[in-house]
Every structure is written in C-alpha cells, then in structure tokens.
C-alpha cells in the first residue's frame, strides 16, 4: 500500500517530521507514489492514511485545532496517528491542564513538562519493548509522560517519571522526538502496523 502521510502543520517542527517520514519511506523502498505533505484543513486530512502530530506548544496547537475546525475530523480520522511530544499530549484522554482540549484517542492520562524546564531536557538511550536493533536514542525536550494507561494500550518504554512510548490500535505516541535523529525504526514500525510494508526490490 502506498503511504499518504500528512503532518499537521498548525505550529511546531513540521518540516523535521516530513523529512523523517521521507527518509523512512526511502529506506522501505517506496517511490514517489508514497507521499508526505502538510495538513492544515479537514480536506487535507481526508487525503491521508497516516498523520503525524508534531512537537510544538500543546496549548497553541490545541487552540488552533479547535479554531481550524479540525477537532471532530481528527477524532474520527480512520488512519493511524504518529504523535510526538505536544502531539502525545493531544492524543490523551486526560491532561493536567484545562487549556488543552485533548482528542481522547489513546486511553492515557498525560502530564505536560513532566521532567521540568528546558535545562532539564535530555538525550538518553531508552530500551524499547519488542523492537530489534538495541535501545533507541531519544531526545526529550520539555517532554510530557503518560502517568496511567488503559488495558488496551501497549507500553513500549517507560522511565522513572512515567510512560514515554506507547501504542493503541493504529496510533503511536512518544514523549520524545525521533524526527530529530536519523533512526527511523519507530516510523517504520508505525507504518508496518498500518499495513504499509517495505517494498522488496
């Protein structure tokens, strides 16, 4: 299946997500019929079979989702969602901040800025459950964590502060930023689970 991957382009590190998915698709042998593009409206969203919710400021992105009439279309989106950092906050059922209007697509409670301020931002190698190739080099920037997750959630990684990588149905949520590095294992895993497979040459 061809990939039609949208990146929600309301605010945040959109171009890094586009580049990371393009790299993942290239490594999977996909040609130009698989695409990655910006999504700003419900009409763009309808063209996607996968969507990335980028990092950025979750309060700002949440406000802009509502303003742009994207809240209901996102909730009923049938493809998979790959959510990092602020994106993970938006996917939750519960968030520790009343200004966020979370989408409720993953059964979890999320705390924003769970590690503290920018000076507490860090890089670390994190073991990932069920993933080959060794620990994942993860970049945490004013990152959130999931404090609780429902029984339908598969936890991929946790640190003392909480859960930092998890999956539910076709969705994946990460506290950290795989799009800032060149390790595309998580992107590829996400696409595989959607039925977007590597193309054998």
């Amino acid at each position: 299946m061809d990939a039609k991957i949208g990146v929600l382009a309301l605010q945040g590190n959109v171009s890094e997500h586009i580049d990371a998915f393009l790299l993942a698709l290239e490594r999977m042998g996909h040609g130009p019929s698989s695409e990655v593009f910006e999504v700003r409206s419900p009409a763009h969203l309808a063209e996607c079979n996968a969507l990335a919710l980028p990092g950025g400021e979750s309060t700002t992105i949440s406000r802009l989702i509502d303003k742009n009439g994207l809240y209901e279309p996102l909730r009923s989106f049938r493809g998979g969602i790959f959510a990092t950092c602020a994106g993970m906050v938006l996917m939750a059922t519960r968030v520790d901040d009343s200004r966020i209007h979370p989408l409720g697509l993953i059964d979890m409670a999320v705390d924003r800025n769970a590690f503290g301020r920018q000076r507490e931002s860090f890089e670390a190698d994190i073991p990932m459950d069920g993933m080959d190739g060794g620990p994942f080099h993860a970049v945490f920037i004013r990152a959130p964590v999931a404090t609780t997750a429902g029984s339908a959630v598969r936890v991929l990684a946790r640190v003392p502060q909480g859960i930092v990588a998890l999956e539910q149905r076709n969705h994946m949520a990460l506290s950290f930023h795989p799009e800032l590095g060149s390790d595309t294992r998580l992107h590829q895993r996400f696409l595989n689970r959607l039925g977007i497979a590597a193309i054998k040459k």
Partner: peptide
C-alpha cells in the same frame, strides 16, 4: 537539544 527546542517554536 538547543536547536530542537528552537524548532518547536516554529510557526509561533
């Protein structure tokens, strides 16, 4: 981490 923080501000 420094440049990553800056890139999260984009479009803002």
């Amino acid at each position: 981490l420094k440049r990553g923080f800056a890139s999260m501000q984009k479009g803002g």
